[in-house]
Write a protein that binds this DNA or RNA. Sequence first.
DNA 1: GCCATAAGCTACACTCGTGTATCTAATTCC
DNA 2: GGAATTAGATACACGAGTGTAGCTTATGGC
Lengths: 197, 197
Amino acid sequence: MGDQNSRTRRRGEELINAIHTAVLEEVVEVGVGRLTMDGIGKRAATPRSTLYRRWSDPVEVLLDALYHAHPVEEPTLGADDLRGDLIRALQLMVSWTLSPAGRAVATILTDPMGAAKMSEPLQERVFANRGGTFTSTVLRHYAERGHFPAERLTPVVTDIGEALVVKRLLDGAPPSNADLADFVDQAILPAIGLGPA
Amino acid sequence: MGDQNSRTRRRGEELINAIHTAVLEEVVEVGVGRLTMDGIGKRAATPRSTLYRRWSDPVEVLLDALYHAHPVEEPTLGADDLRGDLIRALQLMVSWTLSPAGRAVATILTDPMGAAKMSEPLQERVFANRGGTFTSTVLRHYAERGHFPAERLTPVVTDIGEALVVKRLLDGAPPSNADLADFVDQAILPAIGLGPA
DNA sequence: GCCATAAGCTACACTCGTGTATCTAATTCC
DNA sequence: GGAATTAGATACACGAGTGTAGCTTATGGC
């Protein structure tokens, strides 16, 4: 007995993954401003000295974790199903936002100091992959195929879906699939002239 | 010379106002998580002991400041000008959001710890005054007078304007009046069936 | 003008996070 | 199985923020 604590000493990838997981959890809980090597170390059950061997400060650890997180998926396009594709694009956005990396990014972007310190590296890594907003990919596709007048595709219109999702998330209640369908039916589709009226 | 530092010793209201101003500035700069008695005291040029005589911790100071801040204005209703009233309601929202108290509230709501600790007292104070969202007051008024079908007035529709404003604010670019007009013309009005199409 | 009130100032012990340094011991490569 | 590597465990001095306490001194009411 008593050999459980020493039987597994994590190394390399395994250890780093544990640390990455720990930072992402930690930042969501305390915010970027209160991110500390101590907190990360305790959560990952590793001494600070191990952290300092690789990173110089908590923000470096966080950036590294985000860099290694899974990238954002691209919305997939169905065949002639604008409404369905819009809903799926918003579902994609919601599920990413609720993932550890997504929650961490949200925490950073809304932090007074975090946004200033980290927005540049974040832009490159997290947002460069998808070329714009989630719904705009879908909307552009169907506008090009003449499903609705292309002049309706303004910056405001491509923001509507994401804006409604963000507002619900800020209110603390992640939108359900039914909510997303309402966003599409009651806000986005009317805005491109395909409303029920 | 040398009597400038002792000529004015602030007392009562004057001192408290200075402290309130200081907390609101401080919280916007560092966030709720990093709010300290020390920081507030330095910004207000008053020793910590004076703060502790009145409040027990930084969050108490902040809540007190918000409690004494000017409340949110109600949107005023013009005569038969739905579009103009909607734009004015959003202007009201933007200007409040950019005020010291508004910025402080935004910082609190998006802070991981702040939201949990303070949302209840905040709800009562800041949001109780206006019965809902900025645009919904306007929309309800015109729906009751038959300017558009009342069944279009869903929770989603009353959120559109606020959601777009919030998204722009999060992006770091407060919407101009022209932007607000676009929100109304391209998103809200179409959603209630009064679009250009 | 006197005096109670309350602000300004300073010091103290305490906690928490920081970097760094040093030592021990588990893993892995050869 | 031996050696190099690298995680784990302390320990340390340092700075920042915390509450508290005590003293000094403007200020305003009487």
